[in-house]
Design a protein around this nucleic acid. Sequence first.
DNA 1: CGAGGAGTTGAGGCTAGTCAAGGCCCGTGG
DNA 2: CCACGGGCCTTGACTAGCCTCAACTCCTCG
Lengths: 279, 279
Amino acid sequence: MTNEAIAMRVPAMDAWYLRPQAAAPSGVAALLALLGVAAPVEALLAGGITVATRRVRACQNLFHEGARAEAIHFVAVGTFKCLHVAEDGYEQVLGFNGRGEVLGYDAMFSGVHPTSVVALEDSTVFALAPADLTELCRRVPAFERALQRELSRQLAQRVVIANLMAAVSAEVRLARFLVHLSDRMAENGQSPRRMLLRMSRRDIASHIGVAHETVSRSFSALAQWGCLAVCNREVEILDSERLRACARSTRGLTTDTPPTRGRPTLRAAQLSDSSRCAA
Amino acid sequence: MTNEAIAMRVPAMDAWYLRPQAAAPSGVAALLALLGVAAPVEALLAGGITVATRRVRACQNLFHEGARAEAIHFVAVGTFKCLHVAEDGYEQVLGFNGRGEVLGYDAMFSGVHPTSVVALEDSTVFALAPADLTELCRRVPAFERALQRELSRQLAQRVVIANLMAAVSAEVRLARFLVHLSDRMAENGQSPRRMLLRMSRRDIASHIGVAHETVSRSFSALAQWGCLAVCNREVEILDSERLRACARSTRGLTTDTPPTRGRPTLRAAQLSDSSRCAA
DNA sequence: CGAGGAGTTGAGGCTAGTCAAGGCCCGTGG
DNA sequence: CCACGGGCCTTGACTAGCCTCAACTCCTCG
C-alpha cells in the first residue's frame, strides 16, 4: 500500500534501476573471488549462470521495501544501510553492510523485500537471480557453504540489534556499535583500529535507538575517556580494551567501566541543585 | 514451578487457552498436522523419519546458548522465551514462541545455538534431526514450503525487534508488543482480544528495552486510556484501533521522506478520559 | 556567496530508571 | 495450622539521563 506509493514516487530512479547494465567483467568468477571461494574451472566455464553487475550511486536505493525480489545481491564495492520505514516516515536503520556481504537474502523465501537498502556511497553489487543462485550452489559446494554461513549471520542479526538497542546508556550503545564495526573490519582484513564511518550520525542514532545529538555527545564522551579519537567521520580506537569494557557494561551494575579518571567534570554533580520538580 | 502455580490460578482462562488442540498421536503425522500441512499417505507410511516428542517443564531450558544443535524443534504445546545472556548475567529476551513455531532453526546452518530457549510453562515440542528434516522436505513439498515461510519470519525478526526497541515511549513499545502478540494469536486461530500472557513483566521489560516497573506503569496507562483491561497476566484488548494508533506513533521523524508536512506530532495524548478499566 | 545539510554543544524540561514500600500469592517449614 | 520468606506486580518519590529546541560552525553544492 504505502510501499507501492513510495515505489511509484521515484519513476526516474526506477528506470535507472531496471536498466540491463549487462553482465560485466568476470561474472561468476568475480563473485566467487569476492566471497573467497575457490571453484573448479569447469563450474565457471559452464554457461547458464548470469551474474549481473550493478552500480548504485550514493543515497540511491538498491531496492525498496515491499518490492518483489528478483535477485539476491552481493556487495562488491561500497557500503549500504538496511532500513525499515514506518508509516509516518521514520527511518529505522537495521544495519550496515559492506564488501562481501549479502543483501536481500531475507526476501528469498517470501519473494518480497521486507526492508529497503540504500547505498551510503557509490557502490557496486553483483546480482544473481534465484534460479541461478540455486544452480550455483549445486555446482560449487563451497559457495553453498559460504551462503549458509551468511544465512547464519543473518539469523543472528536479531541478537546484534537487541544488544545495540538494549536498555543501556547511550555511550555503551555507541561503544557496542563501534566494537561490532571494528570486528567486522578485522574479518574483512581491514584495520580494526582506524575506521572511516560511511554513515551519518543520524543513521547511527536510528540504529542504536537514541537522538542524533546524543550520538554526538557520546562520541565526545568516549573520546574524553580516552577510548577514541574522533574527527568527523574518521574514528580511531585508541584503547580497545577500555572500549570493549564499556561495551560490556550494563546499566544495572555500578559504574565500574569508566572508573579511570574518565570524567573530567562530572556534569551530573554540578547540576545537583536543580531545585525540585515536585508536582 | 511458579509458572505452573500461576497457570493453575486461572482455570477458566486456561480451559479456553489450552483447548485440546489435537492430542498428538505421535510421529510425523502429528508434526504435519501441527503445521497444518496435508501430506500424502505414502509419505507418512514410509519409515526412516523419527519425530521425537519432548516435554519441558516450566523454567527449564529446551537448549542452552552455545550448545551443539542436534535437532530442530517445533512447539506442540506451551510457550517459550528465546534469550541471550550477557557476560554479567543480564538476560536479553529476544522473543516468545508458541504453538506451531520453530525453535532452533538459527542453529541449522552453524551447528551451534546462538541463543537459549526456556519454557514459560510446561510444554511439549517435536524434535527432528537435521537429516530427517531434509528428508521430510524432500518427501513433502508442502512441509518444505511451511519451513521456508518460517525461515522468512525468522529473518524478519530483526525488524520486529527493532520496532519494539526503537526510540519511542514505553507505552508505545508495550502497545507494539501487544499488537504483535495479538496478531500472532489471530494467526493461530486463537482469540486476538483476550490473551493470557505467559511471560513475566520482567521478561516483557527486557524484550522491549525498559525497566520492569515501567512495563507495569505502561500497562496501567494503556488501561487508563481505554485500550486494555488488565488483570495480572490476563489482558483484554478493549479498543484495538486505539491500541494500534498508539503503536504507530513515533517520537522522532526524519525530514527525509516526507517532502510535505503532516507531522504526526509526538504522542498519542488526546486519549485521556476513560472512566474505568474494568469491563 | 547564500542555502542547506552535517555535526557539535548548551540549556532546560520530561521521560523513565532507581530505590523503596506494600499487597498478593505461593511453598516451605515450624 | 500459621508464620515466614520470597517471588511477582504495583505504585510512589526522587533524580539521572536523554530528548527537544536552539544556536553555531564547517563544509558542500548550486
